[in-house]
Computed example of a mutant assay.
Amino acid sequence: MHTADTADTADRTVTGLTFRDATGADVDTLVALVESAYRGESSRAGWTTEADLLEGQRTDREAVREIVGAPGSRVLAAERDGTVVACCQLEHRGAHAYFGMFAVDPALQGAGLGRAVLAEAERTVRESWGATELHMTVISAREDLIAWYERRGYRRTGRTSPFPYGDERFGIPLRDDLVFELLVKELA
């Protein structure tokens, strides 16, 4: 859990959201949230859908449980009125941190929740781990999403990594040109 003064002991409320570290008890809720934001018809209610790029799952209980319990990793859960409405994974990687598994309830997208979660993630890794950069990978075909991150100070690096074709744990690609691009933001 997070407070304005310390980054590890109490809830932190920003823009109507309360941030806390997810626990094993949140795994099913987190899986449902991530799946609803990226896959299937429910994801089309928001703008972050990957339904035109990928079918199948985005994540599963085993993967989320592993992330929640991994050393040097934490999952921020953002709650509104006691319901988890957004989340992200943070992983400490030395001088930088990695940002992933970012999801906002599709029915609530476009209202500033994503911006608030991203800002809280940046604050958390700076204060908790002394990270000087936040890294993330985004499917390069997601130009609208990359543009959103660029407006928040992230820069494209041109460094790519292959999409894990053939590994259905990450979805079933509908295109043969998917790659991840590394985006980086220096944290002040």
Rank of each mutant, 00 (worst) to 15 (best):
E62S: 15
D8T: 00
A70W: 03
E133Q: 14
S161W: 12
A141L: 13
E133M: 05
A111C: 09
R169W: 09
A111G: 10
D167P: 13
Y154C: 06
R142T: 06
V179S: 15
T15V: 07
H2V: 06
H135L: 12
S73K: 10
A111D: 12
L30T: 05
E79L: 12
G56R: 08
G72Q: 12
A188H: 03
L134Y: 03
A37F: 05
T132A: 14
D105N: 06
D26S: 02
A188F: 01
A32P: 01
C87E: 03
A10F: 03
A70M: 07
Q109S: 03
R39I: 07
I172H: 12
L17D: 01
G72C: 10
A51S: 11
A119Y: 04
F99I: 02
G114F: 00
V179L: 14
T59A: 09
A119S: 10
A119T: 09
R115A: 15
E91A: 11
R80M: 09
E127I: 00
V14W: 00
T49C: 09
E41N: 04
G82A: 04
W129K: 04
T6G: 05
G56L: 10
R169M: 08
E168H: 13
E186Y: 12
D26A: 01
T157G: 11
T6A: 07
R58V: 06
S43A: 13
D60H: 11
V68R: 02
P173F: 06
V34Y: 13
T29W: 03
S128A: 15
A86H: 02
V31L: 02
M1Q: 10
A188C: 06
E79M: 06
R115L: 10
Y38F: 08
E41T: 10
T49D: 09
V184R: 09
